[in-house]
Lab assay of single mutants.
Amino acid sequence: KVMEIKLIKGPKGLGFSIAGGVGNQHIPGDNSIYVTKIIEGGAAHKDGRLQIGDKILAVNSVGLEDVMHEDAVAALKNTYDVVYLKVAKP
């Protein structure tokens, strides 16, 4: 199931950690970017929809399929206060 989640960045950013990407696979044979941690009190935690194990398909208009881990981190960092995440639920 794919959904779009709109998050408003807090003082600590979006409030979640990711793993995965080309050269840094979270699941062997899979280059996808996965949510590995939700920080308590952060934007994602308060919103409640993003969960550990969700796959991040895109940030705003930037696709995160088959990208390097660093590029995924940069895509999440290089955002304004309002961030749209395209997410696939497991």
Rank of each mutant, 00 (worst) to 15 (best):
A58W: 08
P11V: 08
D66R: 10
D71K: 15
L76G: 01
V62C: 11
K55W: 03
D71I: 06
G42C: 14
V59I: 15
A43V: 13
E65F: 08
Y80Q: 09
G48Y: 02
L64F: 15
G21T: 02
M3W: 06
Y34I: 14
V73F: 08
K9S: 11
M68K: 15
H45G: 10
L50H: 00
A72F: 04
E65Q: 13
K77I: 13
V82T: 13
D30A: 03
E65L: 13
N31L: 02
M3C: 07
P90T: 08
V22C: 09
I39G: 07
L76K: 01
G10P: 13
K77L: 08
G10F: 04
P28I: 10
L50P: 01
Y80L: 09
R49T: 14
G42W: 03
D54T: 06
G29I: 03
I8K: 11
L76C: 07
L76T: 03
G53M: 08
G21V: 02
G42R: 06
A43R: 06
V59F: 03
D66T: 12
K46D: 11
D81G: 13
F16W: 01
I39K: 15
A44W: 01
P11H: 08
S17M: 09
G42N: 04
A75M: 13
P90M: 11
I38P: 00
L7C: 03
K12H: 05
K89C: 08
K46E: 11
Y84Q: 10
L50F: 02
F16L: 10
K86M: 13
Q51E: 15
K89Y: 04
I5M: 06
L57G: 03
D81F: 07
M3D: 05
A88V: 08
A19M: 11
D81A: 11
P28S: 07
G10Y: 05
V82G: 10
G48R: 12
G10D: 15
G23S: 12
I33E: 01
T79P: 14
E65M: 11
I33N: 01
K1I: 05
L50N: 00
A72I: 04
S61L: 09
I39R: 10
L50Y: 00
G13I: 03
G29M: 06
I5T: 02
A44M: 02
D81C: 08
E4I: 15
I56M: 05
G42Q: 11
T36E: 08
G21P: 02
I27W: 09
K37D: 13
A74M: 12
V83G: 03
I5W: 03
A74C: 14
V62M: 13
V22H: 13
V2W: 04
Y80R: 10
N78W: 06
G42E: 12
